[in-house]
Amino acid sequence: MTGSARLPILIAVIVLALLPLGATSNTLLNFMTFALIVALAAQGWNLLGGYGGQFSFGHAAFFGTGAYAMGLLQVRFGLNPWAAMPVAMLLGAAVGWAIGFLAFRARLRGAYFALVTLAFAEVFRILANAWAFTGAAAGLLVPLKLQAANMQFEDKRLFYWLVLAFVAGALVLTAELARSRFGARLVALRENEDAARALGVDTLRVKLAAITLSAGVTAAAGGLYAQKSLYLDAAIAYGPWISVDALLAPIVGGLGTVFGPLIGALALLGLGELSKMALGNLFGGAVPGIDLIVFGILLILAVAFAPRGLLGLFDRLIRRPRPAEGGEATP
């Protein structure tokens, strides 16, 4: 994404903000709120995976930390959710830094990095499922108190706009990062880590900054999720589903682009819902896992046929094919 992404961001946010004014369906609003939360988690993943080329398979560790922090700070410590939110983001970022410090200092890359992040997320899931403090297997209920001061709104649209504000913030952050020197260093180490180091990039520091930022954004998504559903358990907060969604959305939408995660999340979850409805009607009842089958197929298709995601496809459709495409020409 070059130069000024500000106008497209503004347009996208305005369109999304106007949506609930026209459509009054509660189901649609619920879906859109959920999709934007997933998009936010995916935007976090994209900072590290899309721009930095470090594929995490365990962003649930950050999402879950944000979610549990949000819930526990309110339930166990009586903190106001508006104050709990930044703390949840900081805690998520701290977990990101710690995992990054251990993994990157041990020079884990590629599949090794993916595996170690997955293992951390699973350890957190097992601990949260066993520890009484986090509600163990019974889960954690955040008491219902519909007040704006309590970040719970009578009008569901207000919460949607709140989530949208976070998404907008993450879009601006990504666009600014992509233009910055830090972003250039991050992309350099994605393309060739040894070459980047040879050119004087402190790769460990850049990767650590990227995973910290990435985890903070994904933790915000977790915090919003906790506040939306007011219930958490280990399989929701630290479950593999969010690790997969956070990674899938940028890959389907466009890896290492500002809008990729948002477009990918909306497309993926939309298709998931549609296939649930269509096949549910066909078989006369809900078929469990049908949306995930679609996700898996989409992931394979995206890797096989659309290495630059939906945005790349769109690019190819509206613009004339360039004689030589940088990414695909060289093996």
């Binding site: 590629g110 078929v287 896992g289 089958i293 890797v303």
Partner: peptide, 24 residues
């Protein structure tokens, strides 16, 4: 396309498909 990270992603996709097809 011969890229290691792509194999990682494609096999992840396959595992999601197989697991959920069995679930369905």
């Amino acid at each position: 396309h011969g890229s290691d990270s792509n194999i990682l992603l494609v096999t992840l996709g396959l595992s999601i498909v197989i697991e959920n097809a069995l679930l369905a």
